[in-house]
Nucleic acid binder design. Structure first.
Lengths: 162, 162
DNA sequence: TTTATCCAGATAATTTATATCCAATTAAGG
DNA sequence: CCTTAATTGGATATAAATTATCTGGATAAA
């Protein structure tokens, strides 16, 4: 049970895109360089973010990616769902209907109790993900960082969009 | 991000093993038949449960599996950890240390804020899993079932251990 | 010694990760 | 106005890792 690398990458990348001024964008190539990740795979993840509306893109020369919503409106749940899809982690195959003592479909109106129990836990997970915004994470990170480092990043962004 | 089939299978199987009387056991073959799942793969999952102490095994003719703890002492977290391993779903590769603005290791004493945020959500997930015992799930299931079906299962178990 | 069982390692299928290629789009320069 | 360069968009191929399945050996009772 693992989340793909894209979840880590794109979360960090959103914190950088948050620094991009209105009307500008950062290319996949630049973002891949910033974190030293393979640009081809990152490009695919960025498209997933775009389809979810988390980022917006501009094609052609001078184009690139920027955030599609405010940092307050982007949660970790948004990112995970965009990258990993909406599918729940626990897959119920209704094995209660199998075998010599299997239930008949008509007796299975209520959801399987095992599946329900796992669904409850996943609800708690999703709720905890939804409670954390990009804004909150960035604030936390800024508090633990030095002014020099923050300036360093801001400077890099400025150079990219020049 | 998915849980393996073994999680579903073994959770259901634990609810059956709970009906096995002291000193007796059910074979992997019997359990595989009961739920119509491949016995070879189930055998591997059962070994993971055994290593975690959730079930106990007896080898040789007449052997088999029984629960290794009481139904109150077995939680969904125990099962998930036994089958899926203790590894967290989010994998932090410390990409904050990469690239032109990467932090130096000495400036990374505090955990990465992105990783911490995901860890918080996973804590909520684990907590929710730990809150659900096999006893609770079985009680719920029994309440939604018919006396006939419960007797049917009890009868099947009796025949297997005879 | 035979039979039923668990156990451990090899194999196959699926998913995830990565790379490659080309079309569509936009900006800038001649 | 046309060409060129830089970019996203999308499909497809390849490699690595994970999950699922099988085969054969170890163990213990009858």
């Amino acid at each position: 049970m693992q989340l793909g690398k894209g979840v880590e990458w794109t979360t960090h990348i959103c914190t950088v895109l948050a620094l991009v001024p209105e009307g500008k964008g950062l290319s996949v190539e630049a973002l891949a360089d910033f974190f030293e990740v393979p640009s081809a795979y990152l490009a695919k993840q960025m498209q997933l973010l775009r389809r979810a509306g988390i980022v917006a893109s501009v094609r052609g020369k001078g184009g690139g990616y920027r955030l599609g919503k405010t940092v307050n409106a982007i949660t970790l749940l948004d990112i995970v769902r965009a990258i990993e899809g909406p599918m729940p982690a626990f897959r119920c195959t209704e094995i209660r209907q199998n075998g010599p003592c299997g239930l008949r479909p008509k007796d299975c109106k209520r959801p399987c109790e095992v599946a329900s129990a796992f669904a409850k836990a996943e609800d708690a997970y999703r709720e905890a993900l939804a409670a954390q915004t990009l804004a909150g994470i960035m604030q936390e990170a800024a508090g633990n960082s030095t002014p020099e480092h923050l300036m360093e990043i801001a400077g890099w962004v400025q150079r990219q969009i020049a």
